[in-house]
Every structure is written in C-alpha cells, then in structure tokens.
C-alpha cells in the first residue's frame, strides 16, 4: 500500500503543479455574456467524427480557415451516436455561440427542434434544405451533380473499354445527385458508354467497396467514380492493385493513390462554412433561406490535381462545359428522368 500511496501522492502533486492556469477552469456555460465579444462559431459533427477524411473534416478546415482569416472563435463537438445530436445541440447552446453548425443532413431534425425552441440562436446546416426554414436557420446545399457531371465527362472521354462504374454509399437523394450527374456527364461524352452502378448500403465498409470495385473492373469497367465516404477507400485500393482508374469524391483524394486517382469531384464544404461564417461576422446572416453552392460559387468543382493524368484537350472541354453551366446554358440533370431526357450539348 505504501507504494500505492506514493504513486497517488505523486500523481496529485503532478496535477497540482500543472494547475498553474486555474482561471481556464471556469465552465463556459455560466460565463456572463460580454459586450462586444468576438464572434464565436461552433460545429457539431455527425457520427463520422472530425477526422473522417470527408465532409466533417472539410467543415472543420473551413472553420479553422475562417478563424485564421478574420479571427472568430471556433470549436467543434463530435457526435458518436445518432442519439448524441440533440444533447450536443444543447451543449453547443450552453457554451454561448453566435452560430451553431450541424454538419450533415442526419442532424436536420435536431437542428429544427433546437431552432424552434431557441428562436434567438442562429443555426446553419450542411446538406439540408428545409421546406419551411425558420428565420434563425440557414440550410446550405451543394450542387453535387455539377462536379459529378464534369468527372463523368472526363470518365466518358477517357474510358478505353466503353464501360465505367459508379459506387454509391446509401441510396437516397443526396447520393443519387452524384449518380445522375455522373451519368449525364458520361452521356455527354458518348451515348453508347455503359455505366455500371451499385450502392454499398454503407458509408464505412471499405471491404465491400473493394469487392464491388473488383467485380466492376472484372465486368470491363476501367474507371470507377464513388460517392460513398469510407467505402471509396476500398475502391481506391482495388484500383491500385489492378492498375485501373478511380475517381475520388468530396476532397481531392489524389494523395491516397497518386497514380490511380484520375480526378476528384470536390464538394467544398469548407468553402460553404467559410463563406457563411464570414457573412455572419459581417452581419449579413441570410436567416430563413437555403443557400446553394454550385460551380459558380466555387462550392463544387474538380480537383486541381486533375491535370496530372487528364490530357489538356479534355480539360479544356471540361472548362468549356463548366463555363456553360455557370452561364446557365443548360441545367445538369439530377434525377433519373432528367438524365433520360438529357441530350448532349454542342461544345
């Protein structure tokens, strides 16, 4: 027991010694509101967590950039389970923030409920458009079909076998936009190119992504695009092993397999977060609206590393398509019917 008590004392001593900044201990919940304090923004992640290599991480990067550029206070709170959303909203509310972000449509209900209970608190949500947005909420959506269209066009132009693939996470409208945008882009490149399409029913099962990818490559596809979060890591691994092409999503995924990632369809959650946080700091918070970020607002796009593998003439065509979309020359399809009805535009 003597050893034990020595250990105890040593620990306690260590803790006390390290406790040279006791003022920090004040609980943020009880802090009196200061007049003219810096703008503070917090975000609540979905169950992916802040290091998900995907949109939660991108969101946090956006907030950090906002902090660096115009000195707002930023923090985040991770959700581990679906049941954490509501209490996390409450915790974010207690810590006295000017704006609370919910990252991902999964938090739509929690944000709505919190916003109705606390009409004086500002909220914003990524990837969700409410039918009736309360005055203190902003929905931020991305026109993912636009970047998917561009990578679809690249895939269609570069395929040697006349077959390309799409792997989705769980099948619902947000992911279907990627699928239909991609299909339309392929159609633009050549009407007779076949698109194999499959959903993994998961955003995390990389092994399943790999087996789907392998089977698609076996069926003759040589380029596969994914919109499936962690499932896509399996695709990229399969592409590496088989020496085929993969197309990344959300962030520039080229670093995962520089020789096999052809390009990436980027959804710039960071830009969305950054821009809206800036609006907030400038006092121009667009409450009660859904803000949509597309190619024109730099909310989506293709990865800057694309030029490494994609020939310059194809990239020039992509640029032209991009300009046409921004000018409104045509609307990128995002449903099965509109893809069916889509007729390739003159370049």
């Amino acid at each position: 027991m003597k050893k034990l008590s020595i250990l105890f004392t040593a620990m306690l001593a260590l803790m006390v010694v390290s406790c040279n900044k006791p003022k920090e201990a004040a609980a943020p919940a009880e802090e009196p509101k200061q007049v003219e304090k810096t703008v503070s923004v917090t975000m609540v992640t979905d169950v992916g967590g802040v290091n998900d290599q995907s949109f939660n991480q991108s969101a946090w990067e956006g907030l950090q950039k906002a902090k660096a550029d115009f000195g707002i206070d930023v923090s985040y709170k991770e959700s581990k389970q679906n049941a954490d959303y509501a209490p996390n909203m409450e915790i974010a509310l207690d810590s006295d923030n000017d704006l609370i972000w919910g990252i991902g449509f999964m938090m739509a209900d929690a944000i709505m409920e919190a916003a109705q209970n606390n009409p004086d608190q500002k909220y914003a949500i990524i990837d969700n458009a409410y039918e009736n947005t309360p005055e203190n909420v902003v929905g931020v959506v991305f026109e993912a079909e636009q970047c998917s269209y561009l990578v679809g066009y690249i895939a269609g132009r570069m395929t040697q076998t006349g077959k390309v693939g799409f792997i989705g996470g769980i099948e619902f409208f947000l992911i279907q936009e990627f699928e239909y945008g991609f299909k339309a882009g392929v159609k633009q490149a050549g009407a007779d190119i076949e698109v194999l399409s499959q959903y993994a029913e998961s955003f995390s099962d990389a092994a399943k992504g790999k087996s789907i990818a392998n089977s698609m490559y076996q069926q003759g596809a040589d380029i596969i695009f994914h919109a499936a979060g962690g499932v896509g890591n399996g695709l990229i691994e399969a592409a590496k092993e088989q020496g085929k092409w993969a197309i990344g999503v959300d962030r520039d995924q080229s670093s995962l397999a520089p020789e096999n990632v052809l390009t990436s369809a980027m959804k710039r959650v960071d830009n969305g977060i950054y821009n809206l946080s800036k609006d907030l700091a400038d006092g121009k918070f667009p409450g009660g609206k859904t803000v949509s970020y597309g190619l024109a607002e730099n909310g989506v796009g293709i990865a800057p590393t694309s030029s490494k593998h994609v020939p310059a003439d194809i990239l020039a065509e992509v640029e032209k398509l991009e300009e046409m979309i921004i000018d409104g020359a045509f609307v990128v399809p995002n449903t099965a019917e509109t893809v069916e009805a889509y007729t390739p535009v003159e370049l």
Partner: peptide, 12 residues
C-alpha cells in the same frame, strides 16, 4: 490540465 478537465466534466 487534468484538474480543469475533471472540473469541466463534473460541472457538466
């Protein structure tokens, strides 16, 4: 600081 952390937890 662990004391700060545990204070936050207990208050929380």
């Amino acid at each position: 600081n662990p004391l700060t952390a545990f204070t936050v937890i207990l208050k929380g």
